[in-house]
């Protein structure tokens, strides 16, 4: 993995998403909540149910289920060029939203609906990203 190139690809930190990225550095997975109380990810300009502003990032459980996963063989991104085939997981957080991620130290018999929990990987002093591990 070319970490410098990966960091270049990442979303820039903005007023809208800062709470999420501060959470990853603090070891917390956070989702965006507005007046409807229905969490959303990633960041949106308004609460998508009420269309009202006034959003905040709140720590959530970090628990998820593996909806599906793939192994990417095609080389699309320079940051992943030396990675070999890599696993991309599509997970559903316990609170509802889906996110793309990956599984650290995946077991050989990975299967859909496995229970997962979040872990964080520090890429630099400023950036950390959520990944998931299988709950034994």
């Amino acid at each position: 993995m070319d970490t410098a190139k990966l960091i270049q690809m990442m979303p820039e930190i903005t007023d809208g998403n800062r709470g999420f990225w501060e959470g990853t550095l603090a070891g917390e997975l956070r989702l965006q909540y507005g007046t409807s109380g229905i969490p959303q990810f990633p960041d949106y300009p308004v609460d998508r149910v009420s269309l009202e502003p006034g959003l905040e990032w709140r720590k959530v459980s970090g628990r998820a289920k593996l909806w599906s996963w793939i192994v990417m063989h095609q080389k699309y991104f320079p940051a992943f060029a030396d990675e070999g085939p890599y696993l991309v997981a599509f997970v559903q957080l316990e609170e509802g939203p889906f996110m793309m991620s990956t599984i650290v130290d995946p077991p050989e018999n990975l299967h859909c609906d496995m229970n997962l929990e979040v872990v964080f990987e520090q890429l630099s002093d400023e950036r950390a990203i959520p990944k998931f591990k299988v709950v034994k």
Binding site: L6, M9, M10, P11, P42, D43, W67, S68, W69, I70, M72, Q74, Y76, F77, A79, F80, E83, Y86, V88, A89, F90, M99, M100, S101, T102, H111, C112, D113, I129
Partner: peptide
């Protein structure tokens, strides 16, 4: 902007999205 969050994990392309759906189909 939202696709950037997928890119962090090397996720990209409509084919990869269908691959996720098909894995789920195989499981079900």
């Amino acid at each position: 902007p939202t696709m950037q969050y997928d890119g962090i994990y090397g996720m990209t392309s409509p084919g990869a999205s269908l691959a996720h759906m098909y894995r789920r189909y195989q499981h079900l």
